[in-house]
Design a protein around this nucleic acid. Sequence first.
DNA 1: CATACAGACATAAAC
DNA 2: TGTCTGTATG
Length: 729
Amino acid sequence: MNPTHLTADLNETQLAVVTAPTGPILVLAGAGSGKTRVLVHRVAWLISHEGVSPHAVLAVTFTNKAAGEMRGRIESLLGGPSGTLWIGTFHGLAHRLLRLHWREAGLPQTFQILDSDDQLRVVKKVVRAMELDETRWSPKELVYFINAQKDEGRRPKMLADEGDQTRQVMIKVYAAYEEACRRAGVVDFAELLLRSFELWRDQPDLLAHYQHRFGHVLVDEFQDTNAIQYQWVRLLAGPKSIPFVVGDDDQSIYGWRGARVENIHKYQRDFPGTTVFRLEQNYRSTATILNAANTLIANNSGRMGKTLWTDGARGEPIRLYAAFNERDEADFVITQIREWIRQGGKREECGILYRSNAQSRVLEEALLVARIPYRVYGGQRFFERAEIKDALAYLRLVSSRIDDASFERVVNLPTRGIGAKTLETVRDYARAQGCALWQASAATIAGGTLGPKGAQSLHGFLTLIERLAKETSGMPLHEQVDKVIHLSGLIDHYRKEKGERGEARVENLEELVSAANGYSPEEGSDLAPLESFLAHAVLESGEGQANEWEDSVQMMTLHSAKGLEFPLVFLCGLEDGLFPHQRSVNDIGGLEEERRLAYVGVTRAMRRLYISYAEQRRLHGIDQFGMPSRFIAEIPAELIEEVRPRVQVSRPLYSSRSGDTSGSRDTRKIEEPSHSSGLRLGQRVRHKKFGDGVILRLDGQGQGAQVEVNFERLGRKVLMLAYANLEPI
DNA sequence: CATACAGACATAAAC
DNA sequence: TGTCTGTATG
């Protein structure tokens, strides 16, 4: 083993982390400071210098992509396959455990994984079965409730009988949902984690085995762990196993899906003697960009504290553009991208980031018109497409007859004369008997409780599945898939669908066959290829647009930009209400998470950063007049240069430090029709009681004239212009 | 049973 | 404003 290539290109702190003596370690790694690098090198170091067996290492991440990258990098450092090393996502590893110990975990051997779509379907079914009003008991909210409970490790039984009636009902739905999952032999994502946690907690021998086996547990993106993931790590990293976690509290942006930054604090308490390292040297951005990021994030409270620095150049100022509206903003972005390309830059070096997906359309349209190729991240994933899910449902039924969600999905797809009435009878029977729809179908057919036509059609369906199971058993995986999509009638069904849509679906189904062909099950798995493939399909949803490798502009939300970097970055739509989002501004925790999101956005930029906001933005068909995001004011003014500054304006922004909001902005007079009062739409005004705000609407003239103002502190109010005494500012 | 239309809904998203 | 869902209709 060559020690120099492991340590040669590490800085002092990175080296200290990688070669640190064995013991609990917490690495606070700022954006662009080589976070994953340190983790990967640590693993390689343990194996090559500390004599740790790869067998004894467990490394956990959140996405398959990250896990794959990690494995690749470790292998290239070690110069060979990483073999028995366990690397994966929390869910992937939990799944692996449950497959190995399904009996101890109280699961059927053929248990299937429910994705979020399926989960919603099951909850809907439960709500209907309980005869609850779906408008009052929204299945979506119930799913949210159930997942939140599971993320915290709470079973229905553990939830106190107290609480108001609403909560009581939700708990009942939770319990009924669990029962439905048990009957169908399915496990949702949160359940994978909770169940494997309980497996360890309740089986001390098993836990001891894994604690003994995994001498080293490494966790990436630790700030994103939820309560149960933390408990899972904590159980494993008991007396024998040594934890090593890497994270950045300033980049915690997933609180809304259960992530708990506090786990970083907890960690230090739970593992006494933890050595804390800070990686603060940044290799990505210019000093200007880092300064902006540092100052911005300093507005948050309760941070672990970290200041990014670089020994690189100061770089260009951050450019700020005050667009008239969202179209103008998009045009601006395009002009700048053109300029970048003219100077020899590549399109793929440009990242357009925004807070919410709705913003992408206007930008896309502009890119389309400008004939600039682009790629939007976060589209629909391959395995989430309807036709693929249909095919998978057939395959799952072949593999596990009791999977009710799959049963419901395809009994009548393509239509084979099994209507609502037939299904209702079957469902009633299943409910009464507590059995799966499959058994209920057989029983109701035999019992003669169905109409003759329904019975015959249903029988046809059962026979079809049995036939598929029999004929495909022992076949190579891709032939199984091929056979199923053809014999089920899915291919024909979609072929009939008119237009490009149908064609695309048939192509996707064919793509599924080749995906199956290229699939090789994880090593050491004793699962049949089909079962293994099905689990893979749920856990690894597949990249959106796989092989479009044209040099293209990258568009995505700020959330999906985490972990990426671009030489040129646009942060679009920096308006209060949009970013920070309206739903977060009234709560300090929410606002701080938004600020971390802004921090993530700023730190994506390597060389050039543009920030833009629109004075007027059409959202959901209504024109909104927003104020520049407070985050802009939290960046030191001397780092910002306004693009195309307008005459007679010194600073169009309010300054954060002085709290002074009076810097008046020039709204373009040409486009804004003026009112007899001398006021304009979008104008900033002061009211002696309500404070400062922006004019949203001006109605009527003279005595009866009304004005709607969006006040900074109080939100929107409609006032009589004659009495409002508004003072333009 | 496929299609058309009306109505609800609209923060972010991995597994 | 645009998209998706569920229901009404032929």
